[in-house]
Amino acid sequence: MSMISTKDLHEGGIIREAGNSATYKTGDWRTFVPKFVEENCIHCMFCWIYCPDTAIEIDASGPKPLMKGIVLDHCKGCGICAHECPPAKKGKAALVMVREEK
């Protein structure tokens, strides 16, 4: 990552670029990774609500939000999404944790 020099910093340590945490990639050290099985998804948004980061990508443009997948740049593999995902389609959940291939 490139480091900003003193002369290019905002005075007072103020951060003026809003929402810049989206550009900070933190998801590069997982053991397990959530696998999205789209046909089992009922788009309940539990995963989006419970994700402690911003790793669930959704499409909010329609009348009802749709789960789109995992943003691996921010996912730390904690598994909360898979734990909360309801097995609504024939007892099958849409998110399952699998060992990540490195």
């Binding site: 910093l9 951060i15 003026r16």
Partner: peptide, 17 residues
């Protein structure tokens, strides 16, 4: 124009600030 005031500032930036 939202901003952040007083963020955590560790070994990487405190000295520059």
């Amino acid at each position: 124009k939202p901003i952040t005031v007083g963020p955590l500032d560790l070994t990487d930036y405190y000295f520059e600030h």
